[in-house]
Design a protein around this nucleic acid. Structure first.
Lengths: 102, 102
DNA sequence: CAAACTGGTTTGTACTGCAAACCAAATATA
DNA sequence: TATATTTGGTTTGCAGTACAAACCAGTTTG
């Protein structure tokens, strides 16, 4: 049992909101736009914006900005690195929790 | 898909240090004393003390204070409620893992 | 006796998450 | 046309959090 593995995981991924965002992006394989995430997870714009900035600086997501018609549109997708990090983290947690429930 | 279940898990439990503490307590079925946790997880005294206060106010752990010889000794144990919370968290994580790794 | 150790708690600080406030541009309304 | 509202976000201010340093009460050691 190495519970202390938990203490080494990237803290950026631990937050529930960011974890939900990452899971959403990983689940839908295609890029997801700003407003869809807001609606799906019930977040405010400011909150999503700052979480995304963090996820981007960690290279967990890629942000694409384009114009659709005359309006700006921002879409996000999970990087391969991000997906690996997500799975690693979830497996670490799963592993530890399984050991404790035995 | 209810990734938003993640948003419902108790935030007190999500923190890496507290999760490590809870896992430690749930794994060892007997009460664990202050210093053992510090050594096992590599925490400082102040940090452990405040985390424990939070876990206690959530009723996730029970604190017992007694004197051994002439010295104070504080031991912690996981409550049934705390253990249930861990199990709930495990199920949420397992669910997400299934959905995102497909 | 003083110094150092034990077993913690309290406190100061730096960081974080959140929504309100803001902004630029597009669109609707009169 | 002017101007109000909506869209699609970003920045900012504040409240809460995690952490270790400082502290405290008592004990042991020299």
């Amino acid at each position: 049992m190495n519970i202390s593995n938990l203490l080494n995981v990237n803290p950026v991924l631990v937050d529930r909101v960011r974890l939900s965002i990452m899971a959403t992006l990983a689940f839908k394989k295609e890029p997801v736009d700003f407003n869809s995430i807001i609606i799906e997870l019930g977040l405010t714009k400011g909150n999503l914006s700052t979480h995304m900035k963090k996820l981007e600086t960690e290279k967990f997501v890629e942000i694409t900005k384009e114009f659709v018609g005359r309006k700006p549109k921002t879409t996000y997708s999970c990087t391969k690195f991000g997906k690996e990090a997500l799975n690693n983290y979830l497996k670490t947690v799963e592993d530890i929790l399984k050991k404790t429930s035995g």
